[in-house]
């Protein structure tokens, strides 16, 4: 039985009680009432569209149709250079001895590709917090970058070692792990020292804000004094209840800079 949406809709529209809907269907149903189809079903372009007098029409390098009989190329097949398939016969590539990517390799130059377990194990301990406390920001910063690049190197060498040998087929896992751990110890201690300094700075700043003898808004570049001794003596005398106790730092001369340079940079 032939059944279209138009026929179904027509019957449905006839029995509607509303008279106006039977006469004028809604606009979105209009395509269903079209009696003749204006466009063909196939989306292929008609044959006339292809007659554009192009000789290379349909010739494809990808689909291996080849060149046509009347086509002439500027290069003959015999003149084409042939690729060297054997890697041993290829000419060597000159690499700069100071190429930056050598920093990812053991010696930092054209030497070995991967490290032996003995070379991995040839290291000491990481830097300790006590040793790092004596360093300023520039030193800590340089040391951090050295550590970061060393970790890049270890990760690169480990990936290459596992690629060459297969995972767990060669020694070197443990040695690389212990080396990397010492580097991470150093980096962690650098962070500890920097955190300490930040708290020291913050505590000093808050103490200076409460201290009437310190003027934080003073600009030393313009010759203004940041430390004004004896400015708030009356306040101090009233507040200090225990006058018998002498502070150890009271006998010392006032510091030139309220904050050391290393902390100012950090």
């Amino acid at each position: 039985m032939h059944c279209t949406s138009a026929s179904l809709l027509r019957s449905a529209l006839h029995i509607t009680p509303c008279r106006t809907a039977a006469v004028v269907p809604p606009s979105f149903l209009l395509p269903a009432f079209a009696l003749t189809q204006t466009s063909p079903f196939s989306s292929t372009a008609p044959a006339s569209a292809r007659k554009d007098h192009n000789r290379n029409r349909g010739v494809s390098a990808l689909h291996r149709t080849g060149i046509g009989k009347k086509q002439h190329l500027s290069v003959k097949l015999e003149d084409l250079p042939k690729p060297v398939l054997d890697p041993k016969r290829r000419s060597d590539i000159e690499v700069d001895p100071d190429h930056g990517l050598y920093a990812f390799f053991p010696d930092g130059n054209e030497g070995d590709r991967i490290m032996t377990p003995e070379e991995y194990a040839a290291h000491g301990r990481g830097w300790r917090i006590q040793e790092l406390r004596a360093k300023d920001w520039e030193d800590l910063w340089r040391l951090w970058w050295v550590c970061s690049k060393e970790r890049n190197k270890i990760a690169t060498l480990e990936m290459e070692r596992k690629r060459l040998a297969g995972n767990g087929q060669m020694y070197g896992d443990v040695e690389a792990g212990t080396r990397d751990k010492q580097v991470r110890v150093t980096m962690r201690n650098i962070k500890v020292v920097l955190t300490e300094r930040w708290y020291a700075w913050e505590n000093a700043r808050q103490a200076a804000m409460e201290d009437p003898e310190v003027d934080l808004s003073a600009d030393p570049g313009k010759g203004e004094q940041a430390y004004l001794p004896g400015k708030g003596e009356g306040l101090l005398d009233n507040s200090s209840a225990n006058e018998g106790i002498t502070e150890p730092g009271q006998g010392l001369p006032p510091p030139v800079n309220a904050l050391p340079m290393s902390e100012a940079r950090a």
Partner: peptide, 8 residues
């Protein structure tokens, strides 16, 4: 202070 790995 870069805290990541770049692997060749």
């Amino acid at each position: 202070l870069p805290n990541f790995l770049v692997i060749l």
